[in-house]
Nucleic acid binder design. Sequence first.
DNA 1: AAAACGGGGGC
DNA 2: GCCCCAGTTTT
Length: 219
Amino acid sequence: MKKKDTWGPLIHTLRKAVQKRTLPSVSRVAVEHPSPYRILVSTVISLRTKDEVTLKAAERLFTKAPDLQTLAGLTEKEILTLIYPAGFYKNKAKHLKQIARILIDQYDSRIPNDQAALLSLPGVGRKTANLVLNLGFGIPAICVDTHVHRVSNRIGWVATQTPEQTELALMKILPEKYWIEINELLVRFGQGVCTPVSPFCSRCPVYDNCRRAGVKKSR
DNA sequence: AAAACGGGGGC
DNA sequence: GCCCCAGTTTT
């Protein structure tokens, strides 16, 4: 006997609230060029960097380095120039070159489709690894960024301190079939409605459950 | 658990 | 000027 799934309607409600927002940068890359290589590279670039900057940096890099071999052939400085001014560009350039080298030497020039292998790469944490699994391979995983962490706690889905705790808590309460879409949905909701300091509470469909954590003023 | 990495854009 | 950005690594 199965309990009725109340998540479907709730997710549908949230989706309507963010309907008009454009996709995050990595999702746009995924839509236009659904290759694990592009997902991985654009996700590394997207770390703490605005969508538009990420998109331009990724496009520039992809024209010079459309695959792992050409990426490994670029110097760190060349990569750095291509992805500037994405934040942390020195670290990212170093990591991208290292990643290309490691994948060519140890993974048969392929992007691995398992979490442990992805996590072993420099500059790749849980959020990046899970996003590559989701968008690159269609494998269910919950990737928790600042938006997902903040929103999940505010609207009362979880009560957690760290992103990893949020990931585990969401895996417990959310049916696996929603794991992929919930990432992008909560990010877009966090960007467009449940923003960090002055959220648009007037547009929020789940206001009644909100803890209003960290909310200074609402709009 | 907290600091460091980091330039650009929004307000 | 201050805050924020689809976080990760180091201390």
